[in-house]
Design a protein around this nucleic acid. Structure first.
Lengths: 224, 224
DNA sequence: CCTATAGTGTGACCAAGTCACCAAAGTCTC
DNA sequence: GAGACTTTGGTGACTTGGTCACACTATAGG
């Protein structure tokens, strides 16, 4: 009973065998191509998704037509907030878009409720996922309110680059990630360039001075 | 079995009798004086609170020492986020303060988990509460990012005034509610005064032209 | 009364969002 | 390849909002 997708989720490894069986039987693995709308406001979700591969971008459309980036779901995480909706029979206000090709486990409402009743390990898994997401939202709010844009941009660039030294994103995309205007990104990147921290070309940013960016982030007590 | 506090929570009225009994036996009603710290970061919560009387203000302390107001829990609602922490064994990053004298039902972890296993009605109650809170947070983020301060202040004044025409709060308090500086509140209120919408005195704001405020809020597609 | 303190008012300045453009780099079509 | 169109990035002028410094005023407590 090892080698199933369950092993990929730390919180589920401790599930007793019979519950595992239920979970595997009662759910199915699905694939979605990049740029699919995974869920949308006004469309009541009927499954909880656990991501196996790819990333999903969750954002909120404002009344004014603009969008705020809320968070990104990575492989090994779950779209908990879909659950919120699923269980609360409430309409969702955020929408999710597959950023890459995605494979995920879809747990339908019925299976979910059965497992929540049956297994305390499963309950804990769900609540931990919630908790983490909510904490992230708190951090996001904090950032938006108190953190300077240059610090937030530096931090996000480092995050998006990962181990590489390049970020593939237009200024407009970066602006939407941080909930700010493209112009602000352009100006801030120009400043970073002046300081020798980045080189730019169309649609990409090369990090040529990570340490500068890192120092900036640290100096502000940032999260990364 | 009517006339207990359970009746005050819509989502719990449908609980079967045996579960009600468990809930009442396994929890207790507590009272807290105004300004008590209900929960704090770094102090792992051991009960879920359902508010019977009073209000609790939930805010997040920033690294930089300032605070962001997150939301207010009213009578008939629950401190769900405490739950997140409680169940996830994670440390909480927000803190809650009783704004008034408060009475609440405290459900310890053990009871909570038993009920979650036993009753689908209880599970739905919990998830609905979560869902509502998360949606509120989304709306908050949206407001912070896209809404003008004058609209937000007008909206908040109307909300705080309720059916009365007076708000008891200093400029500093209003500033902290909206995550902005006292000076901004002073200036905006001065503007509202010039337009004949409010009169001010020390520690209070009289709404003398609700319609003006309401028009401002509506004109921006506001939430109220 | 006098003084401390909490609450409020204001001006100068800076950071960031908005608006209106323009310029440069890629794409498509013929 | 030439020309038209689209996407992306750059820039200046202006507005809003946050920060800092400091002055003024009401009120509570001696």
């Amino acid at each position: 009973m090892s080698g199933t997708w369950i092993e990929r989720f730390k919180g589920l490894r401790l599930l007793p065998d019979d519950v595992r069986e239920d979970l595997i039987q009662g759910s199915k693995v699905v694939s979605l191509p990049a740029r699919t709308q995974v869920f949308a406001p006004g469309q009541s979700a009927d499954s909880l998704l656990l991501l196996l591969e790819g990333t999903v971008r969750v954002q909120q459309k404002s009344d004014t037509g603009r969008e705020v980036f809320l968070y990104r779901v990575h492989a090994g995480e779950s779209c908990v907030l879909t659950t919120a909706c699923m269980l609360a029979f409430e309409e969702y206000s955020a929408d999710g878009i597959a950023e890459t090709d995605v494979t995920a486990v879809a747990i339908p409402r019925k299976t979910f409720d059965d497992l929540a009743a049956k297994s305390s390990v499963f309950r804990e898994f769900i609540f931990t996922a919630y908790s983490r997401r909510i904490t992230d939202l708190f951090t996001l709010i904090d950032d938006i309110v108190f953190q300077r844009m240059d610090v937030r941009l530096a931090s996000r660039l480092l995050e998006l680059a990962g181990k590489q030294d390049i970020v593939h994103a237009t200024h407009a995309m970066l602006g939407s990630e941080l909930g700010t205007a493209r112009e602000v990104i352009s100006r801030t990147l120009a400043e970073f360039h002046r300081r020798g921290w980045v080189e730019q070309s169309r649609g990409e940013v090369h990090l040529t001075g990570r340490d500068g960016l890192e120092r900036l982030v640290r100096s502000a007590g940032g999260a990364y």
